[in-house]
Design a protein around this nucleic acid. Structure first.
Length: 259
DNA sequence: ATGGTGGAGGGTCCA
């Protein structure tokens, strides 16, 4: 099975690109972030016609996440239980696989805006709550994948110009430490299980021709529990959709699981 | 240091 994550920066705008990409790249699960649309606007019918279920939690203007899946989603969890938050950033589902249940968590982690800002503090608090949530999910579901826009570049290999970015939001040490806490639960960054080309990124700023200069960051990740790590045979960043007209500023990350 | 672009929504806010 293949699973993927893609921050689409408005599903209203990007729906045709998502459907076209799924046509070329069938997925057992596709995690979407930044829908930027209310629940009633989520294009459930369009996905159904393409052969997919949709579990989602929408939000007007900002945030909103969805999991597109071939199998019918079960045990849908929206948001982080016990974490009071009006921003819709998390959804989790259980999917059937030949080896048994696979738990999929889709997350749009906060951006943080700038180190020291209120939004930065919110980001670090959010990560504490999210890590506790994932710890609980791991205890319940051995086969767990956590996919999303983490808004953290884990180390300098994931940054086009580490000197320029040093200490700033998305790469600061407290953020990287929060990311390592997640890994510390027993999760592995699927992309780093394999040899990769240098300067591989998943996001490029719209401004200053970021994509043309490959001035990007790797901030979209697929984390796998050990039982899924053991069956993961590939993880790639698909840069093709970033070359579309009217692209998202992010591009999909895909993991292949031999299940 | 500033501002560059894109999305949403009708002000600016967010990324």
């Amino acid at each position: 099975m293949r699973i993927a994550t893609w921050n689409v920066n408005s599903l209203t705008v990007r729906l045709p690109q998502v459907l076209a990409w799924l046509q070329d790249n069938p997925m057992e699960a596709l995690c979407l972030q930044e829908l930027k649309q209310a629940d009633e606007k989520v294009p459930v019918d369009a996905f159904r016609e393409a052969g997919y279920h949709v579990a989602f939690i929408g939000q007007k203007t900002y945030n909103g996440v969805a999991i597109i899946s071939k199998a019918e989603p079960r045990d849908i969890q929206r948001n982080i239980p016990g974490f009071d938050d009006d921003q819709q950033r998390v959804i989790a589902v259980t999917l059937d696989s030949p080896q048994g249940d696979v738990r999929i968590i889709c997350a749009y982690c906060p951006n943080g805006q700038a180190v020291g800002s209120d939004k930065y503090e919110y980001k670090l608090n959010w990560y504490r709550a999210f890590t506790a949530f994932v710890r609980g999910e791991m205890a319940k579901y051995p086969r767990l994948a956590v996919l999303g826009d983490y808004n953290i570049a884990p180390d300098d290999r994931d940054v086009h110009d580490p000197a320029k970015w040093e200490g700033s939001v998305l790469v600061s040490e407290p953020e990287r430490s929060a990311f390592r806490m997640l890994l510390g639960l027993g999760l592995s960054d699927a992309f780093r299980l394999f040899e990769q080309e240098p300067k591989m990124f998943s996001w490029w700023d719209y401004r200053m021709m970021g994509f043309r200069r490959n001035a990007g960051l790797r901030i979209d990740h697929i984390l796998l529990s050990d039982p899924l790590k053991a069956v993961c045979s590939a993880c790639i960043i698909d840069k093709v959709p970033r070359r579309n007209e009217q692209p998202s500023d992010h591009t999909p990350v895909v993991a292949t699981l031999d299940l």
